[in-house]
Design a protein around this nucleic acid. Structure first.
Lengths: 212, 212
DNA sequence: GCGGAAAGGGAGGTCGCCCTCACCATCGCT
DNA sequence: AGCGATGGTGAGGGCGACCTCCCTTTCCGC
């Protein structure tokens, strides 16, 4: 049974979380923990007392963003037109990637030793599959694409945002609308490579975490 | 007037270049120079004597790759069908990106203090413009895309390769063929964002270099 | 207001990277 | 063969990151 935090501890914890949100948003999930502590006006030892691992801090800092995202996603599922829902979902997701580099990194990677992040990732994958299937069954999205193709899209959008955020902050949106034309059933041409399997996809996300 | 290198100097220089090619290919243009020296069986001071800056080493190591690329590109320009040439060019480019992470990085960035790399980049941009214009004039590629869209494509392909090279080494090819469907003129849908200007594009490439 | 538990602090060890420089080794011209 | 120029070496200084641990400070219940 965890007793409530002492007042001073609570305050410093909050400052750390605020600083972490800023730093992760600006520099991605590999941001310097020492800089976060400095920004929070707190000693590095204090950061480690509250958050023994980087992942602990990450999860605490991203909780609100993730909730916000999941809420937005539900709206997409409630839309009547499957294609519109699909577009809305991706636009919402891309917009959040653009606004937060940490969220961007978080989406692209798997953190195998956190059951909590794994659960969130699984949930998002499920949402994407639902979205895509609905659009495919309505005959709007081409039938030869899978979850893995959408994850590829998320990865590549992440890169475009890294490149353009400082100079052309809306470039990702243009890229998305181009990509949507690639996904329409009416324009589909055969693709010479099979989709990635789920396992390949998973391994690739783990790989991104390991290669920093 | 540069006199020829002493025999021992020439040998060590060659070993350094070979090690640099391996390391850059495996870890990108930010690979550790100390590791390159170690791999070459040479002291770090020797590396710096031959190549005072990272860019000097980079250029020396990439010269052959770049030549190889430019040769392949010429083939594309000689093809009769403009669309086929366009596809061939991109497939060739993507394949080289997939085989060499250093080349991949090199494509995405600008190194402002090297006239030589700037020249090469300018040349590639010109090739792309020629390629694209030809395909557009033949009515095969949609008219509302520009050089910047192709550079976006190169960036995003770079990211997909980073993610998938270890688990699904041909995933980039699937992505390319999907993207090609986005570029076809037939039944193109309007895009709500304007293309990036050349200046935005240039700044974005410089930005990628600075943020490591 | 006091005592002990909870929390904070930050110096310091480790690592990998960049880059320099004073000294030593080697080559090759004569 | 000998000597000067050319080239090689690697310790060492600087940096910024990670993480630990012991000592000090602060809180809060009694």
């Amino acid at each position: 049974m965890r007793r409530p935090l002492r007042r001073d501890a609570r305050e410093r914890r909050d400052k750390l979380l605020a600083a972490a949100q800023r730093e992760f948003a600006a520099h991605g999930v590999d941001a310097s923990l020492e800089k976060i502590a400095r920004d929070a006006g707190v000693a590095i030892g204090t950061l480690y007392r509250h958050f023994p691992t980087r992942l602990d801090l990450l999860m605490a800092a991203f909780q609100p963003r993730l909730q916000e995202f999941l809420d937005g996603a539900n709206k997409a599922l409630e839309m009547n037109d499957p294609w519109e829902g699909f577009v809305y979902y991706l636009e919402h997701l891309f917009g959040m990637q653009a606004g937060d580099r940490g969220f961007n990194d978080f989406l692209s990677r798997r953190f195998t030793d956190s059951a909590e992040t794994e659960r969130i990732h699984d949930e998002m994958c499920q949402q994407i599959v639902d979205m895509l299937t609905r659009a495919q069954e309505a005959g709007e999205a081409r039938c030869d694409i899978t979850l893995a193709d959408i994850v590829n899209l998320i990865w590549s959008n992440g890169r475009i945002i890294e490149a353009t955020s400082a100079t052309a902050p809306n470039a990702w949106r243009r890229y998305l609308y181009l990509m949507l034309d690639a996904y329409r059933a009416e324009r589909a041409h055969p693709i010479p490579e099979p989709p990635m399997t789920y396992e390949q996809l998973y391994d690739a996300m783990v790989h991104l975490s390991e290669a920093q």
